[in-house]
Design a binder for these strands. Sequence first.
DNA 1: CGAATTTGACCAGCGC
DNA 2: GCGCTGGTCAAATTCG
Length: 300
Amino acid sequence: MDSTRIGHSSLSLDLKVGSLRFPGQVPKGLPKSLKHEEEEFLMKREAGDLKAELNRVSEENKRLNEKLAAIYEDYANLQRQVMDLITTMCSDGGSVSPGRKRKSESLAMHGYNIDGADGMTNNCMGHQIGRNSSENSCKQAREECLKVSKLYVRTDPSDSSLVVGDGYQWRKYGQKVTRDNPCPRAYFRCSFAPACPVKKKVQRSAEDRSILVATYEGEHNHGNPSQLTAPSGSSRGGSVSRRSSGPSNITLDLARVGSQQEVETPELPARSLVEQVAWSLTKDPEFKAALTTAISGNIL
DNA sequence: CGAATTTGACCAGCGC
DNA sequence: GCGCTGGTCAAATTCG
């Protein structure tokens, strides 16, 4: 995403407000008539400058809007492609793979190595494979797709803890060694709200032990506690413990093309795109200063 | 001492 | 029906 680029685009709104002279502020040592003429001349020139600057800023604003619209369109296209893929997979029925007809998590896990297809889709495939190709199961799988997401977290391979710091509080309720992966899988429940239905499974990737695969099921019925309050001092367990992974090394497999991307929540709402841009703009001190100057110039 | 984690037992789904 | 596997429970254990 080039939101940062947008944020740092050449928005130097230098309206030369500082050079604006008020009536009466005339350079000393000039005859009064000359002073008056020069004053008028300067004001005209500044007005012209301001107009030009305003036009330029308007143009820039227009360009940014177009950029944003293009990004939106790309996003919508991607979403459509994902849905098409899901539909195609569903209509193909269970012909993808024989093997064990169970919640084929292993298949979903392998998915992230195959290509850049997103984890939710892989997951959906995982659920979909192994069920009959009836419409109902397809719908069910699609519904599950909406609620299940995966995160891939790179950690130190020597660190044996299965902790994924995602801002929520988790209570571990089980651990199991699964057939297809010698690394144990840990089961967590969201402990921030007693009624929160969200569960999380964390397991090291069989191929790359340095990668933790966190599978989220369900949706939180509360906000992110790390955003509401500072993480409480609950020292153990819970995943609030930050020792193994900061946000910077959490990735969606959607973004696993080459380099890692910064944290994304499992479901990235379309609105957040705007928020991201707004955030990067408001974070930019240059932009703030320019905006302030422009506004104060307008007022003056 | 209370809360969180560990771990073996148990249960349910699925293939044979 | 049996065995295998993933998921969950709950008593025991650990830790601050």
